[in-house]
Design a protein around this nucleic acid. Sequence first.
RNA 1: CGGGGAGUGGCGCAGUCUGGUAGCGCACCCGGCUGGGGGCCGGGCGGUCGCAGGUUCAAAUCCUGUCUCCCCGACCA
Length: 564
Amino acid sequence: MRMTNLLLPTERQAPSDAEALSHILGVRAGLVRQLGTGLWTWLPAGWRSHQRAVQIVREELDAIGGQELLMPLIQPRELWRKTGRADFDEVFKLEDRKGSELILAMTHEESVTFHMSQLVRSYRDLPKILYHFQTKARDEPRPRAGVLRTREFIMKDSYSFDRDAAGLDESYAKHVVAYDRIFDRTGLEWYRVESDVGMMGGSGAHEYMAPCPAGENDVALAPGYAANVEVASADPQPVPMPAALAAPAEVTTPGMATIEAVAGHLGVHRGALLKAFPVVSDSGKLVLVVVRGDHRVNETKLRNHLGEGFRPASTEEIEQQIGPPGFIGPVGAQVPVLLDLAVADGASGGWVAGANRPDTHLQGVEPGRDFAFERCDVRAVEAGDLVGGAAIRIEPAIEVGNIFKLGTRYSEPLGATFLDESGSEQLIVMGSYGIGPARIVAAAIEQTADEHGIAWPRALAPWQVHLVVLGKPDTPEREAAEGLYAELVEAGIETVYDDRAGGAGEKFADAELLGCPLRLTVGRRTLEDGLVEAQARRGSESLAPIPLREGAAPAVEALLRELA
RNA sequence: CGGGGAGUGGCGCAGUCUGGUAGCGCACCCGGCUGGGGGCCGGGCGGUCGCAGGUUCAAAUCCUGUCUCCCCGACCA
């Protein structure tokens, strides 16, 4: 591709409102442009990278027997009523000229299940894996960070259809294989992490996470362990228990309504206290959640344990049903107590907890002896907690893919059934599996960029070679560059050719901003010796120059292989 | 939805407080020089100052309303 023909609007300055690196560089390198909040156009260079991600995904899904199809973006709203998702805030609703109610699909479980409910009759029709690349429309509450979270984006979603849970396990395992290969091939740093199955009842889920600063999720990582912090579990760091406060007694703590104040007053570690967090579940039950004073409640884990949503109790509810806010605790509380796993029984020294009376705490508190409780893991893990003896670290990451065992969540309301060998009707067991190519591209930018710009992994680069010519028209440099460009194109090497009239600095800066793996420079300096300079985008050392005389394409191909 | 910020040529910004002919850098166009890291000289094009209404002799500037965009949080199959 000649740059004189290419729409590649590079910018020296970052857009003033951009924050995330992928946003800044995506715009500066001329990959994407914004049309509105969460609405982005992919310009030619960016679209090439996007398509490269798409093609990798396609090849690996085909390899596990997936079949590509295409379902509509616009769908009848009635279909979504059957699954209870028609009224979701995220769903764009619209009407046609006749007033028929339609929606823009935010995903395609409904439509694919609808079809399969008609097309699958027998166990002989199963299993199947279907997938497509299609625009998803979501009325996001807050789009952000360029193409990272948008209101309209292309997603690869695949769906598996099996006769039973064992079949689903197999389809799921196939997707694990395909996804692992996909993300290996992209060249990203990635982790497959355990993830929340949510309230929709799924029996298993993983997310594929690409660590980078702009990530919206946090992952807990340790050797051999990776989990979304929403579900991560780890052994807590030990806390020094105050032996001096082992004897049960009341302590006066006037006005000390915070963990910090009480711990400071008593001269103990915050972790020696019990933090009481009263919540009211959606069904109206008041529960006192108790974690170590230096720990925080993990809302996802708590919600999953409760089996329903919840909200923090109001001040009134706390005062009326437990005690004065700031001084509440499990001892003597007239509500169920949910005690976090990290609070060990009979810890030497005993715990400090609110006494449910003003300006008063209790020391020497021992779970079981002093209060009844239900034990569960509800705390948020923290960096330094141990998994298998190793300390975890917590990193922000982009979710680039997920895999989810749906079960019969959709086949049941949509009546997707089949007849088994005995002629009895069974529900199809489903899985759903997503990948966001745009996020793969954004993650690659985030993970590889340096102070000069993007440094694509080869698999995602819009072009493999960035050919720069230095020299005015009608010079030997131009002539040599034209010849080389023609040869590279002929050899099938994807090349962007900077044939513009600009100066060297400008061209080199743009090449580094765009980030193609290999830069070739035709200039007077080496052309006199019949050579073309080669420079890898990553690393600063110049590569051996390439002789032009005998044809350069094989040498360029060899260089590219080395860069891989 | 709550909090904060911003809308002035393609991009980045000044001007707004204190009303008086809309500016700067980059980019772009023309001519020339230069020709290996965003170079130099000269000459140009380009803006209903987000939109609507109001105040005023006069509004980018003051008032009211409204739209859009960004950031943080809530939210995120």
